[in-house]
Design a protein around this nucleic acid. Structure first.
Lengths: 235, 235
DNA sequence: GACCATATGGTACTCAGTACCCTCTGTAAA
DNA sequence: TTTACAGAGGGTACTGAGTACCATATGGTC
């Protein structure tokens, strides 16, 4: 029995379009491919393209919308522990999306590097991740001095670190260990901004009801606050 | 003698176009203003618009190109001293551009907030600043482990801090002290990444006085912060 | 078979951006 | 004075993305 004989659910149009588009982008480049070309190859009407992808750029990043939803869910679920560590986990969600399809991700990376329009579009996508993280951090830092500022700076740092690790993996053609690269990059940020980084402030958070923090007077306030927060959050 | 009688150098078309465009954007919004509307009000040919502005978005950010050149020049000139401090100075260049025309900057901010296309465009502009800074830092960090990674993370943090200060000033309608807001935001980054932050402990013989805080785990965070703040403030 | 929702196709339009060529106007050489 | 040239601006027509609106299947339910 052939594959075609079975009542195969014909692949959803979204996939068909994305596939056709990507073939054409690789063949003749993004800019020299029109939406008409895509729908012609996919064998569907032009109107259908814009039903599934709001713009020609969207077809290059078909899964970010879902990943963004995943990240939002993850951050809404996680409410304990070191906030910086949590957003790092959120960032790893993005990495995993890329790592799930190495060849596709690498090809897309090469495409994106050469098409200014795609770079700009990618920026706006990345920015949405960053905003999502910043918003989460802002929620965790309410009441702390400069909470919103720290939230945005840390989110930006996490995104930059993640992207650095991701890009070095993409540049390698998807050969190296993506997780390791990103973990290492995120580690740098966590060393500086994470709860464990509050080296200036030693503390003991025993199982008791008391938290003791000792800090030198020169310790920046945010570091002290961070340390206390994580201590209070422990278990 | 009337103004028109003197051989006044007619204002450069670039200005005329920008003026006309901005009027229209404020009157009926960015998206409901076509390039034809703009050139009609400016009394020039449509073709001329695109001679001076590569895109409709560019007319909203007419001075970023020059500012970017200034920043590049500044970074090429400065080659000594703390690299982080240098990129902070570079960021302040951008702030000064905004602060030079508060009303314009505030109106543009409001416009940009509401038009997705402008937000995206602004992202791409900001990204160019960030890349410029990162490249400078990369040059200063050659040979140090994870130099490129640090360069990108720090550049991202500086940009995020700068934008945080800038935006809070823009939100205030240009009333507060922009320099102070940005200086404070950049200070947070410098405390962490700057040269002075090198020793993670950060305490010197001079200020090894300590503050000890004891709090029960149920103490609200704001109260803990209050107590530490007042303790640290004591001289 | 009638009915309805959902998926898809088609046509015509707006508007940004580009290509190509034209017309001025001032200047400097012949 | 004429000619040659350059540079600023104008005009027209085109491409292609994205939208609005309506038409047409198709599949399931009563």
């Amino acid at each position: 029995m052939t594959e075609a004989r079975r009542p195969v659910k014909k692949p959803p149009m979204r996939e068909v379009l994305a596939e056709a588009a990507f073939q054409l982008f690789l063949e003749r480049g993004f800019e020299r491919t029109t939406v008409d070309d895509i729908v012609a190859r996919a064998g569907v009407g032009r109107r259908s393209f814009f039903r599934y992808f709001p713009s020609k750029e969207d077809v290059v990043f078909p899964d970010h919308e879902r990943c963004l939803a995943d990240m939002t869910a993850l951050l809404e679920a996680a409410d304990e522990g070191d906030p910086v560590s949590t957003v790092c986990d959120a960032a790893r969600l993005v990495l995993r999306m890329y790592a799930a399809n190495p060849e596709f991700s690498v090809q897309r990376y090469r495409l994106t590097r050469e098409v200014p329009g795609l770079r700009t579009y990618e920026l706006s996508v990345v920015r949405r991740y960053e905003r999502t993280m910043a918003e989460y951090l802002r929620g965790r830092y309410v009441g702390t001095p400069d909470g919103p500022l720290h939230a945005e700076v840390i989110a930006a740092a996490v995104v930059a670190a993640h992207n650095n690790g991701l890009r070095s993996w993409l540049r390698s053609g998807g050969e190296g260990d993506a997780e390791a690269a990103v973990d290492h990059a995120l580690g740098v940020v966590q060393e500086v901004w994470g709860a464990k980084a509050a080296g200036a402030a030693g503390s003991t958070a025993d199982d008791d009801e008391v938290v003791v923090v000792v800090a030198s007077k020169s310790t920046p306030m945010w570091r002290v606050v961070q340390r206390i927060e994580s201590a209070l959050a422990e278990d």
